[in-house]
Amino acid sequence: MLNAFSSDIQCSQLGNDGRGHYCDTPGQTQVSGLCSEGYFCTQSAKTSTPNDGNLGDVCPSGHYCPAGSAIPHPCPAGSYSNTSGNVGPETCVPCESGYFCDRRGLASPNGPCEEGFYCAGASASPHPSGMTSGGGPCPVGHFCPQGSHIPQACPAGTFTRYLGQASCSECPEGFYCPVQSSNATICPEGYYCPRRTEFAKQYSCPQGTFSGSLGATDIGTCLPCPPGMFCSRLGLGRPEGFCALGWFCPAGSISDKPVDFLEIPGPTISSNLSRYNRMCPPGTFCPQGSFYPIPCTPGKYCATPELDSESGFCDPGFYCSAGSSLPNPRDGEMGDICPPGHFCIEGSSSPSPCPPGCFF
């Protein structure tokens, strides 16, 4: 027959199954029951809800105590609990995003995630080693300051080419960096890229210029379109083509038939601009690719504007100086009628004296 137990130690020995029990009456032959949930009972507790700290107590923060707990169960790493009297593991809260909980039994997170890393939630380390659902090193093209819960994309004009960066590097001159760049990309032809350039065509060479260089850094690398050629569009890597027949293109022309506006005195803005086109005037001709009007060849004439070659030879009985616009000039500058004592065959550039024994 089982004897009655009167001592606390003997009561504790009755419930020798690894769980927390209590004995509320001396001389019991069996334990009174299991320790209540939210409490733990050690040695010989006299109540299911001890709170003296010697024979048991309320389950402390950072732990949980199901019914029959002999010791508190710690919340696992990656979680914490800031309340006491917890009854099950579901009361352990996953570590907040941006923070880490690196050991068991925490009442609060240890602190913020380290810079260069992100802690997505339930992280057990300030620097998660692998990219998992709990976090990891900041990926390339991103930056992670201290306390990051997600990687942040590098803004346009910056980049990161390595893992685990807390900040993004400035895009260097001669390169451009779109959002989330893991490297700087060389500036294309026809454009220039100062520091922090955000996209390839952000800074274009203006009309009338071009740049055939990769990695240009400033507008000074945009060269004027060569004489005899034109550059009508922004961002050209080479001139578009030659000046049109009958026209001439000085350096920096933006059309194959360029027209300039010259400022002249006038009462209003609309009246003080005058069109000045680069069409070859009478008395000159312009083959394709001309950069200045070529005076008509002596002995020939150029009758109309926009010519790409001479109109023809000077009339017989007349002579034509360089730049003549008529086949029979009479002004003495572009030519004139053949003077007495001279003769002028077709295409004469100057009068020829009559030979001895002849006269006209």
Rank of each mutant, 00 (worst) to 15 (best):
N82S: 14
N82H: 06
T83N: 05
S84W: 03
S84H: 00
G85W: 00
G85Q: 03
N86D: 13
N86T: 00
N86R: 01
V87M: 02
G88Q: 10
P89M: 06
P89F: 07
P89Q: 07
P89S: 14
P89R: 03
E90H: 00
T91L: 00
T91I: 00
T91A: 11
V93K: 04
V93C: 00
V93L: 10
P94V: 01
P94I: 01
C95V: 07
E96R: 11
E96H: 11
S97G: 15
S97V: 13
S97D: 05
S97Y: 02
G98M: 01
G98W: 09
Y99N: 13
C101Q: 04
C101P: 07
C101N: 01
D102T: 02
R103V: 02
R104A: 15
G105K: 06
G105W: 05
L106M: 12
A107K: 15
A107L: 00
S108W: 10
S108I: 01
S108E: 14
P109Y: 07
P109R: 15
N110A: 12
N110M: 11
G111W: 04
G111E: 08
G111D: 11
G111K: 07
P112W: 00
P112Q: 11
P112R: 14
C113S: 13
C113Q: 10
C113E: 09
C113F: 08
E114A: 14
E115K: 15
E115T: 12
G116Q: 00
G116D: 00
F117G: 02
Y118G: 03
Y118E: 08
Y118I: 01
C119D: 07
A120I: 04
A120T: 06
A120Y: 02
G121N: 08
A122C: 03
S123M: 05
S125K: 14
S125D: 14
S125G: 04
P126K: 13
H127A: 15
H127Y: 11
S129A: 12
S129H: 11
S129W: 09
G130V: 09
T132K: 02
T132I: 07
S133M: 13
S133G: 12
G134S: 13
G136W: 09
P137F: 05
C138T: 04
P139W: 09
V140N: 03
V140L: 08
V140M: 10
H142L: 00
H142Y: 14
H142D: 13
F143A: 02
C144I: 08
C144E: 06
C144F: 06
P145G: 06
P145M: 07
Q146T: 11
Q146E: 12
G147P: 05
S148V: 10
H149I: 00
H149C: 06
I150E: 11
A153R: 13
A153D: 14
A153Q: 13
P155A: 12
P155E: 12
A156Y: 05
A156M: 04
G157W: 05
G157F: 07
G157H: 03
T158G: 06
F159D: 04
F159S: 09
